[in-house]
């Protein structure tokens, strides 16, 4: 049934925190060597050490993937130092919600830069390697798992640009899925609801905005989302899990 990821290489963006970090740990536990990407080098080194001490293999790659050049470099280093690329998890992201007149334009630009462009740059550089892995690796399959959001399915007041970036991710994933289906690169999108990470802390008042919409909810943990990532990647080759919406039971 579920496969081991031994001798596969995964690249996880946003690995310094939250969902990316938990996904990297989970894939390492399943046997993958993991490239860890984010800007905060110290955190990545600490995670790499944690993974190695648990018997896994990891490579910390500090980079700002809003630069196409750095994103391409991240993929190149992963392939040259870990020996290929079978799995890409795009989890780096930023949420800065608020009233549109008061919010600085810069906040919107920053969300587009990481949530959409960052994902786009890493994926673009990764595609040839993923196609190669799907054609030549023992598992004969490769995976891209994109972390969108329930905000990628439903738009809400004061969430305009975050939602726009996440709708874009959902749409791009579906288009790529269709384009690469016959080449055995599986594209999946996970749309999580509220998860206890640093995401809400990037701007004051965001959690209050959320609870005024949904009430207090028991949030999910990053590990809950990582479990969905692992479920997708370890499914047998023939099974493509294209989309998982996962939300706190309390979150209407």
């Amino acid at each position: 049934m579920f496969e081991k990821l031994d001798r596969t290489v995964a690249l996880v963006t946003g690995a310094s925190s939250g969902i990316g970090r938990a996904s990297a740990l989970r894939l390492a536990k399943a046997g993958a060597s993991v490239g860890l990407v984010a800007r905060r080098a110290g955190r990545l080194e600490a995670l790499a050490t944690e993974i190695r001490e648990a018997g896994g293999a990891a490579l910390a790659i500090a980079a700002d993937i809003t630069s196409a050049q750095e994103a391409a470099g991240v993929v190149a280093r992963t392939v040259s130092e870990l020996g290929g690329l079978d799995t890409l998890v795009n989890a780096a992201g930023l949420m800065l919600n608020g009233p549109s007149i008061e919010s600085p334009l810069d906040e919107w630009d920053r969300m587009v830069a990481i949530n959409l462009c960052g994902l786009m740059y890493v994926t673009k550089a990764a595609l040839p390697h993923l196609v190669e892995a799907a054609a030549g690796s023992p598992r004969r399959v490769a995976d891209v798992v994109n972390i969108s959001s329930v905000a990628g399915r439903f738009a809400a007041s004061q969430v305009a640009i975050y939602s726009a970036t996440k709708f874009a991710v959902t749409a791009a994933t579906e288009a790529w899925r269709q384009e690469f289906a016959k080449r055995s690169v599986r594209f999946s999108v996970i749309e999580p609801g509220a998860t206890a990470t640093e995401l809400f802390e990037q701007k004051a008042g965001q959690w209050e905005g959320f609870t005024s919409m949904f009430g207090e909810v028991e949030q999910m943990h990053p590990e809950d989302i990582a479990e969905a990532v692992a479920f997708i990647v370890t499914n047998p080759r023939r099974v493509a899990i294209n989309e998982i919406v996962v939300r706190p039971t309390d979150q209407a």
């Binding site: 949030q219 999910m220 969905a228 099974v239 493509a240 899990i241 919406v245 996962v246 939300r247 706190p248």
Partner: peptide, 10 residues
């Protein structure tokens, strides 16, 4: 506390 609300599988 986790609800897998939708699962699309092909």
């Amino acid at each position: 506390h986790v609800n897998v609300a939708e699962l699309f599988i092909l």
